[in-house]
Design a protein around this nucleic acid. Structure first.
Lengths: 215, 215
DNA sequence: TAGATTGTTAATCGATTAACAATC
DNA sequence: TAGATTGTTAATCGATTAACAATC
């Protein structure tokens, strides 16, 4: 019997566990493609780069999906994680900032594979965007239209790839228009209400901190 | 009196502290540009997006730089952090993979500002690279030349932006050639010796994990 | 049944925060 | 001296790991 935490009851799962769940999900997808039917916590953990005991603890936050002595059904576990993560429906996302990084991310196929569709992009100066619209495969609007667009389309997730100076203002508009989760590639520290989640990917700091460990 | 841990004695600082030190360093740089001479832990912490008490704890791992009642000298603290982080010399870095993401990162100015210089790029098929060499400002070599180049030039840091299938093989060559720290943008989980440090930026997982928090 | 592997509790480890004495 | 702010210890919190009973 599979026990699933009800979608209605507010489940709180540690942020790090949530992050790893999406790693597990990707590994399971690969196993599905290879027609593997069953996997043990040991094997799945290894392919995700974690300890088996951590994997089992993580899954414990979500429910019970395994069979003792056998392991996990790849299909069942994958569906369960997708369900909890809200990955069962294609999630619309907007991209803000279409410079170097923004346009590279627009062409990155990994997001779509994960179940996301970037439906529109915004820039402070769309006429300056160097990549042809048909190359990007979506329209680039003036950032002044962003608030309305996001509200009208019920968009709840956004990716920010603007210069530091513009980060906070962009975030303010997104939040005011209903965005609940932001992936922030700008160096700006974003101040948002508690109920809004920000994942900050600080490229310069990631590289900078590596320097400590060399030589 | 400023006390600095000797460069010879092996200091071990938690990885998260090291990461935040590079945030502080960037904030201090901005203060320097504004000719601010002194800053309190409260103000510096706020601009880095952490609690003052955490900032002071982090600095405590490195030495004593403040003046009670007054705060920190921006110049002194900045130099101290640069010293500990090894940011006083321009650090040469190689980029592996010049696709969408790789070429965007090559044009990203944030790395250079932080004290890094990307001195060469490698790709499995340099003839396929879409961006003109003079636009990138550096040569793109065949990946088969990577090992020799890295060893010859004493390169100790690398950025990996290749497809998942190539990630591990690339890492193996880098490590064998003397690379000690890797910033990995490929989805691959890299197996490297303990003395090599990997920062993994998993774009799809960052976005994927946000999905849990919406609606 | 015997072997394998989960689910979960307890123990450990590390990181964050609060509090405050030291001291400019 | 009085006010401010650091440096550091102790308390709290959360996350990881080990261990093992439950059970297929």
């Amino acid at each position: 019997m599979v026990k699933l935490s009800s979608a209605l009851e507010k489940i709180d799962i540690p942020r790090k566990t949530v992050y790893r769940l999406s790693l597990y999900q990707r590994c399971l997808q690969k196993l599905l493609d290879q027609n593997v039917e069953t996997v043990s916590s040991e094997d799945l953990a290894k392919s995700a780069g974690v300890k088996p005991t951590q994997l089992r603890k993580d899954l414990g936050h979500v429910g019970q999906f395994g069979t003792r002595g056998l392991g996990y059904s790849v299909a069942t576990l994958s569906e369960a994680i997708s369900g909890v993560m809200g990955l069962t429906v294609l999630q619309p996302v907007v991209m803000v900032g279409v410079g170097n990084l923004g346009s590279a991310l627009l062409r990155y196929s990994g997001f779509r594979k994960e179940g996301f569709e970037i439906i529109a992009a915004f820039d402070a100066d769309p006429s300056q965007v160097k990549v042809a619209p048909d190359q990007l495969g979506l329209p680039v609007y003036d950032v002044r239209e962003m608030g309305r667009y996001v509200a009208d389309h019920g968009v709840r997730m956004a990716i920010i790839a603007v210069p530091e100076s513009a980060g906070q203002a962009v975030a303010d508009v997104l939040v005011a228009s209903g965005v609940q989760a932001i992936l922030n590639f700008s160096p700006a520290v974003l101040n948002v209400p508690d109920e809004v989640i920000v994942n900050h990917v600080d490229l310069a700091a990631e590289l900078g901190s590596l320097s400590f460990f060399v030589s």
